[in-house]
């Protein structure tokens, strides 16, 4: 995985790119640490550039939710309309766990 983010006033626009899998745990936590350090009030996470996610990747997304809540940050996800990532959200009922745009 790769990631980019840009801060606009109090909102952090984050894009996650590439496959999100069991091998990305350390890099994902590094991203979360950087997002927290950016001191925004809201994170908007764009998952549309992700072509593939596994169950460990879903678990990593829960870290966004947990870390945001602990830091009193509002976090939302932007999901692709179709494809493997959307399918994984559907069958795992993950949409219910997040604010989805």
């Amino acid at each position: 995985m790769e990631y980019t983010y840009i801060k606009s006033e109090d909102i952090l626009e984050v894009s996650i790119l590439g496959k999100l899998t069991f091998r990305d745990q350390k890099k994902f936590q590094q991203m979360i640490d950087e997002l927290i350090a950016a001191a925004a009030l809201k994170w908007r996470i764009d998952l549309r550039p992700i072509p593939y996610i596994d169950s460990a990747g879903l678990g990593l997304l829960l870290r966004i939710k947990d870390n945001a809540e602990q830091a009193d940050i509002s976090a939302s996800l932007h999901l692709p309309e179709s494809g493997q990532v959307r399918h994984m959200f559907n069958i795992s009922h993950f949409e219910k766990l997040f604010t989805v745009e």
Binding site: D54, G59, R63, M88, S92, H93
Partner: peptide
């Protein structure tokens, strides 16, 4: 029932089965 799993792991086999 994946809707009841809110933990960081433990979904792999059920997702594979699907």
């Amino acid at each position: 029932d994946l809707s009841k799993n809110k933990g960081l792991h433990g979904r792999g086999i059920s997702l594979a089965l699907s």
